[in-house]
C-alpha cells in the first residue's frame, strides 16, 4: 500500500494490441494469487515468444508500453500484480481494458493512457514518466508525449495508495456516525 513515485525512469518493453490477462499471467499461476513475487517471475510469459520467461530480463523501474485494449480477458487482479511484481514501474498503453484499468487504479498502480506514446516509443527507449503532469519523456528519441487526464477521483485513488485507504476512512466514518 505504498504511494506511487511521482517520477519514474526506465527502459521500455513493447507489446502489441489486445494483450489479454492470460498472456500477462497464465491461469496456471493463479494458484499463487497471494504471492506477488512468484507472480512477477512469470509475468508476460503467456505472450507468444516469451514462453521461457521475460521477467528475468527486466530491470527494476522498466516500463511496459502496449497497444490498444491492454489487459483484456479475465478480471484477475493478479495481472497488474504480476506486472508490478516483475519490477515494472508503470504501464503506458494506447488504451486499457476496463477491469485491468480498475484494478490498477484500485491498487494505486500507475498506468497512463497515451495513443501517441504507444505509437512512437520503440523497444528499449529510455523513458521518464511524470505522473502528476501526465508527461512521458523519451530520452532516446528526444521526444515528449502527453497522457490522457483521469477524472479527479481516480487521480486521488492513484496518489493515495488506491482503494484500500479510501475504504478504511469510510469504515471509520461509519463507526463514528
Amino acid at each position: 500500500m505504498t504511494s506511487v513515485q511521482p517520477v519514474m525512469r526506465g527502459r521500455s518493453w513493447k507489446f502489441g494490441d489486445n494483450v489479454d490477462t492470460d498472456q500477462i499471467i497464465p491461469a496456471k499461476y493463479a494458484i499463487y494469487s497471494l504471492d506477488e513475487k512468484k507472480l512477477g517471475e512469470h509475468a508476460m510469459e503467456g505472450v507468444p515468444g516469451n514462453e521461457d520467461g521475460w521477467a528475468q530480463q527486466v530491470s527494476p523501474g522498466d516500463i511496459v508500453v502496449a497497444g490498444s485494449n491492454f489487459g483484456c480477458g479475465s478480471s484477475r487482479e493478479i495481472a497488474p500484480v504480476a506486472i508490478r511484481g516483475a519490477g515494472i514501474s508503470c504501464v503506458i498503453a494506447d488504451s486499457f481494458a476496463r477491469i485491468f484499468f480498475r484494478n490498477a487504479i484500485n491498487m494505486g498502480y500507475p498506468i497512463l493512457q497515451s495513443p501517441q506514446a504507444a505509437e512512437a516509443i520503440h523497444p528499449g527507449d529510455e523513458l521518464e514518466v511524470d505522473l502528476e503532469a501526465g508527461i512521458i519523456r523519451n530520452f532516446t528519441q528526444g521526444d515528449e508525449y502527453q497522457a490522457d487526464r483521469f477524472p479527479p477521483f481516480m487521480t486521488e485513488l492513484l496518489f493515495h495508495g488506491g482503494l484500500v485507504p479510501w475504504v478504511r476512512k469510510r469504515l471509520q466514518e461509519r463507526t463514528l456516525a
Partner: peptide, 27 residues
Amino acid sequence: SHSCTYGALNNFAAGVGSTDLACVLSL
C-alpha cells in the same frame, strides 16, 4: 469477468477485481 452474464435478467452486472470486491464486501 463473466459476471456480465446476469444482465440477461435485466440487471446491471459487471465483473470487478479483488480489491473492488473487498470494497463491496466491506461497505
